[in-house]
Design a protein around this nucleic acid. Structure first.
Length: 282
DNA sequence: AGCCAGGCCCATT
DNA sequence: AATGGGCATGGC
């Protein structure tokens, strides 16, 4: 993959490891969609991009903030090398072939924490609805819609607000976590620690954050790749496709990390996307 | 209609 | 440390 950063767009060439549909529907983010002209749109933080296909393996990312999206789409990482390493595992090849256009997004930390607290025991369409509602209710107006709210804006939200937005029993968790993020040095400590396990323990102290959600935050918000979030889908992959006998999800995650090391986070995302390939999210 | 969803909290053992 | 019941709410 090659890319050129311009004033109001990024042009992507040889994009075998950049496929908008794969990236956006792989369950990492919840504010995206398909326009009538076939372009994909994505919003995160206070930014928006539209991705238009120019030709085979050739895209243009239209945005007023190209620098942000170079980082967001993880363009500094060489995915060919990751695919080559993981491809040595024979059983991964169908998933890698199907999902080679997936990338691991480098997302704003607070947004990831809120999104994945909402994700627990929930379905993706409903998560999208709640997250979108939170932006519309508490985020700043933008040229195209609404930004994801800042921590200060989020601190205005009550438990009733989150209930009204369809967050269900997670509403009190959100209020409690938002209050703590504003009053303690949690975000700073998360960013400063060298230890993934230390960061995990900090996250587990948050209400609504268990082992799986913590690993998603580590992966999508803190760019730690020695993690393997195990949800209901990965659980099926483990037992049905890998023939695993363990039932404890923390132990399943540890088993995967033993296999795939620092490629675990990428591997998990390819497997998750492949397992859900028959479920449409447009 | 009933099961399931990118699980977690909390009480009990 | 491990287990299990309860849980808001909408998608399918």
């Amino acid at each position: 993959m090659k890319y050129v950063v311009n004033n109001d767009n990024i042009e992507v060439f040889d994009a075998s490891t950049f496929e908008p549909e794969s990236i956006l529907t792989s369950g990492q983010l919840f504010r995206f969609g398909l326009l009538e002209n076939g372009d994909w749109w994505v919003e995160t933080g206070e930014n928006r991009a539209e991705i238009t296909k120019i030709g085979d393996n050739h895209y243009k990312i239209l945005t007023s903030n190209p620098k942000f999206f170079v980082n967001y789409f993880d363009f500094l990482t060489n995915y060919d090398i990751i695919l080559e390493r993981l491809g040595k595992f024979e059983m991964l090849r169908p998933a890698l072939d199907y999902g080679k256009g997936v990338r691991l997004l480098r997302q704003p930390l607070v947004e990831v924490i809120i999104n994945f607290i909402i994700s627990a025991n929930n379905n993706i369409p409903r998560i999208r609805k709640s997250v979108t509602g939170i932006c519309e209710r508490f985020g700043s107006k933008t040229d195209w819609g609404f930004a994801f709210p800042t921590l200060e804006q989020l601190s205005q939200a009550t438990e009733q607000d989150f209930t009204d937005l369809g967050c269900g029993y997670r509403a009190p968790y959100l209020v409690d976590t938002i209050k703590r993020l504003g009053s303690e040095k949690i975000l700073e400590n998360l960013r400063n620690t060298d230890s993934t396990e230390n960061a995990r323990q900090i996250l587990l102290s948050l209400k609504g954050v268990g082992p799986k959600v913590a690993d998603c935050i580590l992966l999508f918000g803190l760019n730690r790749y020695d993690v393997f979030p195990v949800d209901t889908w990965i659980n099926k992959v483990y037992t049905n496709d890998f023939g695993g006998m363990e039932t404890n999800r923390k132990k399943i995650a540890q088993w995967f990390v033993e296999q795939f090391g620092l490629d675990s986070g990428y591997c998990q995302q390819y497997l998750f996307y492949y397992k859900r390939k028959d479920i449409t999210l447009k």
